[in-house]
Amino acid sequence: MQFRAAPLLPLLAATLFAVPASAQMDHDQPHCAALSELPAPLASWRTPSALQAAVDRKGAAARAMLTPGQAVTAALRNTPDVAYSVRPAKPGGSVSYGGLASFTVKEAGTWRVALGSGAWVDVVKDGKTAVSVAHGHGPDCSGIRKMVDYSLQPGRYTLQIAANGEDKLTLLVTRLP
């Protein structure tokens, strides 16, 4: 199968690809002399709040809640300490970092998870992983390395982060216009 550029949201000036289930891409990064401007849905990327990621789903629901549209710098956990609801397709090794957080979808639509690394990401509800509808990298020189889009219905979701090389990760969950 080949990837085709998805006709999604060109205003975000990023490269996205329609994808099969669970596919996520990683890309070489450009050399940047200056930071790029960010479109409105990603505007909070450079002013992240702090968040302590949880080690399990219950902790994510109680204490690691994401506000849609607000980027966070998540303090991640040692991977061996994390109990994922669904085993990630690409689990990290014992020396990597991961964690869980939760967010609420109030309005159905396309929701984007943006990451500052190539970590593996899953959106989980009722023990099932949401199927991504597009993925790609962020705008060049934005610091956003990876973006994965999902078509989500209203409800409470768990965000799983796996296989991150650092113990901190900037991320953002946002609804696309």
């Binding site: 990837f3 090794g93 990597s96 090389g165």
Partner: peptide, 24 residues
């Protein structure tokens, strides 16, 4: 992925079965 320096990349990270063990 513990076969990589920072635990982020397994052989299977690039060689995915559904792609004939190639990469997208």
């Amino acid at each position: 992925a513990d076969l990589s320096a920072n635990g982020t990349l397994a052989c299977a990270g690039c060689h995915e079965q559904k792609r004939g063990f190639a990469d997208g």
